[in-house]
Computed example of a mutant assay.
Amino acid sequence: MSLDSQEIPALVTTRTTTVMLPVLINVSFAHCTPFPALSTETHALALAYWAPLGLRGTGCIETFLREWDANAALLKQISHDAATFDAIVEDGMPLSSFRMHAPVAPRQVYCTIGNYRRQLLEAALDAGDGPDGPGASARRAVLLDSIEPRRSDGAPYICLKGAVCVSGPNDRLSISRDLTTLDWEVEIGVVIGRSVAHVSAEDALHCIAGYCVVNDITLRERVFRQDVPAVGTDWLQSKSRPGWLPAGPWMVPAWNVADASQLRLWLRLNGSAMQDGVANDMIFSIGEQIAYLSSVTRLEPGDLICTGTPAGLGSHYGRYLRPGDLVEAGVEGLGSQRVLCVDE
């Protein structure tokens, strides 16, 4: 049964980045402490190179992002300077010389659940007697009828995920043999650039430092606790183990993303396409998610928001991650990551 519907907006493929400006990465070499750098497609140069100009916290990605409000204007000026590209190539080192780490080091990680229309519709059709069963049409109608009322009267469903989950874009993902329903979720990660409280959806976009690729690894069998079924979801057991949020390879500053709602997300498992969607399929926009979060908590510089995932989860295919799998996940303009699953 097709997911296309007049109630579901058409997916678009408009590119949102028009020029390749340097991106922010977090790297190390020869077992040194990771440090932030600016990178072209081939080379990287430590941010410390520009510290004499006034950049703060150039020795640590966490400190640099927490000082984003003070650093942003100067970093933008540096990024747009034609001499910067030459400096990265001439004074930097090839990217292949470095180990890539996550380009973020958040104190808080927030994950928006059930935020893509097609993903919710896919789950509704998979339920019960399946997408071709006699009950599928009724489930489809109920789901489609619920989306706009939820948009107008509801709020995003957002959970916390531990900061210890964050790992690098090429790190290995250890999977013990008892984890049989470990699933993938490619998402756009939003990095907060300033302290935010009670901001409107319209103003929220001005609070974003940048965007990155994230994969919100989730253990499906632990989302609902069998021993306390009335309690509801358990995001600690199902989402928050170390390494369950590969991030990167880099952070693209917000000024180089014209419209994040046009970004295309994709994920491949062992070379086969599993997810392919566009952010305009979100029920709650990135601005609306930030506004909602800021109404109940205070967002701080460096905090990370995982904004939801498109259709094509392992729970749809009945195929979950296992040792030996290669997961490639990317977002148009934000790069891609390669994570090898290994036996714990």
Rank of each mutant, 00 (worst) to 15 (best):
A83M: 03
T84N: 06
F85S: 09
F85H: 15
D86L: 08
A87I: 06
A87S: 11
V89L: 09
E90S: 15
E90R: 15
D91F: 09
P94I: 08
S96Q: 13
F98C: 04
M100C: 10
M100G: 04
A102N: 07
A102V: 08
A102E: 03
P103V: 08
P103C: 12
A105P: 04
P106K: 08
R107F: 00
Q108D: 15
Y110P: 00
C111R: 00
T112C: 14
T112W: 00
I113M: 11
Y116I: 01
R118P: 00
Q119I: 04
L121I: 05
E122M: 06
E122T: 09
D126Y: 10
D126V: 05
A127M: 10
A127N: 12
G128E: 12
G128R: 11
D129I: 09
D132N: 13
G133R: 02
G133E: 07
P134S: 10
G135S: 14
G135F: 04
A136N: 10
S137V: 11
S137P: 01
A138N: 14
R139I: 02
R140W: 01
R140E: 02
A141T: 14
L144I: 01
L144D: 02
D145T: 09
D145F: 01
S146G: 07
R150K: 12
R150S: 13
R150T: 14
D153V: 07
G154H: 12
A155V: 15
A155K: 13
A155W: 07
A155S: 11
P156M: 08
P156Y: 08
P156G: 11
Y157T: 13
Y157W: 10
Y157E: 13
I158G: 04
I158R: 05
C159L: 15
K161E: 03
G162A: 12
G162S: 11
G162N: 08
A163I: 01
A163C: 07
A163Y: 03
V164M: 06
V166P: 07
V166T: 14
G168M: 14
P169W: 09
D171V: 08
L173M: 10
S174V: 06
R177M: 06
R177P: 03
R177H: 12
D178E: 08
D183I: 05
W184H: 05
W184V: 05
E185M: 05
E185F: 02
V186D: 00
I188F: 00
